[in-house]
Simulated scan of single mutants.
Amino acid sequence: MKFNTPLFAQGRLPAGAAGFFLAITAFASPAGAAAPAQNPAPAHVMTVAAHDSIDARINSLHNRLQINGAQEALWQKVAQVMRDNTDTMRALRETRMSQMSSMNAVDDLKSYGQAADAHAEGIRKLTPVFQTLYDSMSDEQKKNADLIFRTDHHHPAKKG
Rank of each mutant, 00 (worst) to 15 (best):
M1E: 02
F3T: 12
N4Y: 11
P6R: 05
P6N: 04
L7Y: 06
L7M: 09
L7P: 09
F8V: 10
A9C: 13
Q10N: 04
G11A: 04
R12I: 12
R12D: 07
L13R: 13
L13D: 03
P14R: 05
A15T: 04
G19Q: 07
G19D: 12
F20N: 14
F20W: 11
F20E: 13
F20S: 06
F21Y: 14
F21N: 08
L22C: 04
L22P: 03
T25R: 15
T25M: 08
A26V: 07
A26T: 12
F27Q: 04
A28F: 15
A28I: 02
A28S: 10
S29C: 08
S29R: 08
P30H: 05
P30A: 01
A31R: 14
A35M: 02
A35D: 00
Q38R: 08
Q38M: 00
N39F: 10
N39P: 00
P40R: 06
P40A: 00
A41G: 00
P42Y: 03
M46S: 12
M46A: 14
T47Y: 10
H51C: 08
H51A: 09
S53D: 13
R57D: 08
I58Y: 07
N59C: 02
S60Q: 12
S60Y: 06
H62V: 05
N63K: 15
R64H: 09
R64V: 07
L65Y: 13
Q66G: 02
I67F: 09
I67H: 15
N68S: 07
A70Q: 15
A70K: 15
A70H: 15
Q71S: 03
E72F: 11
E72P: 06
A73L: 04
W75Q: 04
Q76V: 10
Q76N: 13
K77S: 04
A79E: 13
V81L: 05
D84L: 01
T88Y: 00
M89I: 11
A91W: 03
L92T: 01
L92W: 07
E94G: 01
T95W: 00
R96I: 10
M97G: 01
M97L: 14
M97E: 14
Q99N: 15
M100R: 15
S101A: 14
S101T: 08
M103V: 01
M103G: 02
M103H: 12
N104T: 07
A105I: 02
V106W: 02
D108M: 12
L109H: 12
K110S: 05
S111N: 14
Y112L: 13
Y112I: 01
G113E: 11
Q114W: 00
A116T: 04
D117V: 12
H119Q: 02
E121W: 04
G122C: 06
R124D: 08
K125Q: 15
K125H: 10
L126Q: 03
T127F: 02
P128N: 01
V129D: 05
V129S: 06
V129R: 07
F130R: 00
T132I: 00
T132V: 12
L133H: 07
Y134K: 14
Y134Q: 09
M137K: 14
M137Q: 15
M137A: 09
S138K: 09
N144H: 14
N144E: 01
A145N: 07
L147E: 07
T151S: 02
H153Q: 10
H153A: 09
H155S: 07
P156A: 07
A157K: 09
K158N: 05
K158T: 07
K158L: 11
K158R: 08
G160H: 12
G160F: 11
